[in-house]
Amino acid sequence: MYILNNYLLIILSLIITSLCISIISFILILKVKKLVELFRLSLRSRLLRSYIKSIEARKKRRLRKRYMVFEIINYGRSLNISKEELDTLMKKYFKELFGTTELSRSGLTLITIDKSKFRGVLKYHSTYRTKVLMTLALLQVKEGLIVNPLRTTGTLRKALKYARIIK
């Protein structure tokens, strides 16, 4: 009887301790959740957002040049468009989409076009990548020139090498 009583006591004490642990852990989880929520709220705060914006603005100041090699798919037909014409078309559509100030900021220029290889190289500032690509999409829809952007590089030499305009 005495041994049985002892066992019961031990089991009871174990149950009570496990209950205590679970309650404590539950309280701790709640506290941590509150802390996480507080952290999230602090991340959303205006001050922090403005700070992040200012950092981004600082980054934007430094405009890096990018050179994009692209291919025009014309199914073997010769290209009836000169470099100057293509350049003005690109600038026209960019201006149509984003305006004159953005065009001057983007630094968009067609550097070269190889009619035999149907390849060309575009120059623009790195932050305007998506805008330039959107212009190319509009150029395709309006002028019927299927554009395949092949690669973007940081130097003109590499771009020309990739376009195989120079060896």
Partner: peptide, 12 residues
């Protein structure tokens, strides 16, 4: 002519 490159679509 209607086929746009996925990179162009992503940029849009």
């Amino acid at each position: 002519l209607d086929v746009l490159h996925p990179i162009l679509v992503r940029s849009i």
